[in-house]
Design a protein around this nucleic acid. Sequence first.
DNA 1: ACAATTTAGTTAGCTATGCTAACTAATCTG
DNA 2: CAGATTAGTTAGCATAGCTAACTAAATTGT
Lengths: 150, 150
Amino acid sequence: MARVKSKNAGAKEGFETADRLHSAAIHLLRRLRVRDRESGVGPAQLSALSVLVFGGPRSLGELADAEQVRPPTMSRIVAGLERAGLVKRRKTEDGRRVRLEASARGTKILQEGRLRRVESLAKALYALSEKEQKLLGQLVELMQRVIRNL
Amino acid sequence: MARVKSKNAGAKEGFETADRLHSAAIHLLRRLRVRDRESGVGPAQLSALSVLVFGGPRSLGELADAEQVRPPTMSRIVAGLERAGLVKRRKTEDGRRVRLEASARGTKILQEGRLRRVESLAKALYALSEKEQKLLGQLVELMQRVIRNL
DNA sequence: ACAATTTAGTTAGCTATGCTAACTAATCTG
DNA sequence: CAGATTAGTTAGCATAGCTAACTAAATTGT
């Protein structure tokens, strides 16, 4: 039965799973947002900074793409990061483009912030059995694959 | 070995899992945000509305708690929802409290918006095997437990 | 009973983030 | 080298987050 109607059955289940995954992601981040604020750096700035720290230097447009944000938005986010001394702006051969890179202080701030944010999440994880933690690790990979399909 | 040093080993792994889960949640929502905008209702409004639709009527303070937001923030979110005719405000015995409930139109708009948002995610899910989809369902349950521990 | 306190929401004012439209400056193309 | 394209910025708008300070209602303590 399940096999015969697998497409429809899968669609309904898939939709429900998608819905719950979406909701869980929202609530997860909402909880972690509290720790985010301790850094004094806004969430969008923190996220953009992390692209530069972990993904290396790149142009403003590339950063905007990576962050799924419009250029003017990224322009302002970067302005804030520069003002805070967390990002440096360098010239390139192409006079229109800029090369953005995290400063030493930016890298430090980011890692501390990241630590704080993930800390509470990691603590919550320890309440799970070792087996469940392993399972969760595997399932995060699954989630990453789903995201790539988006 | 793993048993003997389970606390430290678990801590390191747990931290990495937490980090990846955090990152996955961010990227998941960033992708879905695009569909969110189609509804014409902001994400905070949509999220608050969904609490009223699926969780039933409640006071402004309760809604603020549910959404992990301060009362003034929720006050403005609700003002927007009222302006759009998606939420009704009723008096209660306690003259200080208000009873907020989704209007028929609010319920309709929410369900349509929710449909749109989850649609792309559900599509990405179908790329997974049936077995993996089941597994992902378990992930969400685990994730929900982790969130409750936060 | 009524003054003081507590509780629920709102208002005001700040910052950060998202957008589009319109601009400047640099590069590329025909 | 004139016109088109590309990279980024500026201006102006809306939403969403916060704290501080306010109003109004209910509760408490004497």
